[in-house]
Amino acid sequence: MTDAIADAKRAMRAELRERRHLLSDHARETAEAGIQAQLDALIAERDVRSMSCFLSTTTEPGTRKFVTDAVARGIRVLLPVTRNDGLLDWAVATTDGDISEGLFGLPEPVGELLGPIAVNDVDLLVIPAAAVDASGMRLGWGRGFFDKTLGSMERCPPVYAVVYDSEVVDEVPREVHDQRVTGVVTPTRTLTLAPTRR
């Protein structure tokens, strides 16, 4: 990573993190309802039976209600569990599952862990992001878990990143290992930005 790209990524993440911290409780609740509606429409359109999603932190666009409702409707949802080696394990979401604090303070499910390849058979991946640009390039939070996961998948289903509306930007700094996403889900819209990865 060149210093210039690393510095640009750090600066952009810091600005986006600050903006998220300044959101009001009402704005967060409105965003969560919007994300749920957009994700419900996306899984209906794509006839999703099995997917991955993530448990949102307090500053991320809310996904938890969507996950709970999707599981209650019979959709198999895999949730990521961080590992020290930079890969992700997966656990099947349940309607009454316990949540603990994983690496980096991220909310993660408690339960039987499935290995990194468990996600290979899902119909849709829904992942977090700091920002996504018009070409589908995703800026993550710098830990590389999802870039490694996407880069290692032999047959990758559609991948949608969840961000706030203001985080769909013209361009994000990128490096060779950074992975594009198929599209982006915001509280008000779902955009398809790049072809499904193979």
Rank of each mutant, 00 (worst) to 15 (best):
T95Q: 15
S152L: 11
E101M: 13
A37V: 04
V81M: 01
T182D: 09
R83N: 13
L150I: 15
V67G: 02
T2A: 14
G34F: 01
E167S: 12
A14Q: 15
P128V: 06
A161S: 11
V162Q: 00
R198A: 13
D47N: 15
Y164S: 07
T82S: 10
L42I: 08
R17E: 13
V132Y: 07
A70D: 06
T63H: 07
E15F: 02
V159Q: 03
T82L: 08
V67E: 07
T30N: 13
F66V: 07
R180K: 15
M12D: 01
S24I: 05
A8R: 07
V119F: 05
V71W: 12
A27E: 14
V77W: 10
D3T: 12
F104Y: 15
A41D: 15
A27M: 01
D178A: 00
T58E: 15
T95A: 14
L88W: 01
R64H: 13
T68P: 01
D7W: 01
V185R: 01
T188K: 01
D85L: 05
H177V: 03
D147Q: 10
T59F: 03
L42N: 13
V77G: 05
L39I: 08
F66P: 08
A70L: 04
T68S: 14
P128K: 04
V168N: 05
I43A: 07
A14K: 14
R20E: 06
I35C: 02
D25C: 03
S24P: 04
E154H: 12
A4N: 12
A161F: 04
E108H: 09
A130S: 14
V162Y: 00
V126P: 04
G102P: 05
G86L: 04
V132F: 07
P109D: 10
R83Y: 04
D170S: 11
I35H: 02
A130Y: 07
L16G: 03
R198H: 13
V162I: 03
R138N: 04
T59A: 05
E167W: 03
R19M: 11
I5N: 05
Y164F: 15
L42F: 10
L113H: 15
G136F: 05
T192L: 04
P109L: 09
E112G: 02
W141V: 04
R64P: 08
G105N: 13
G62I: 10
A129L: 06
I5M: 03
G115T: 11
A91V: 15
E167Q: 15
A33M: 09
A129S: 10
E112Q: 14
T82V: 05
A6C: 02
E45P: 05
K9I: 02
L114F: 12
R20A: 03
V126E: 10
A44Y: 09
L193E: 06
A131D: 02
R13E: 01
T30P: 02
V176R: 15
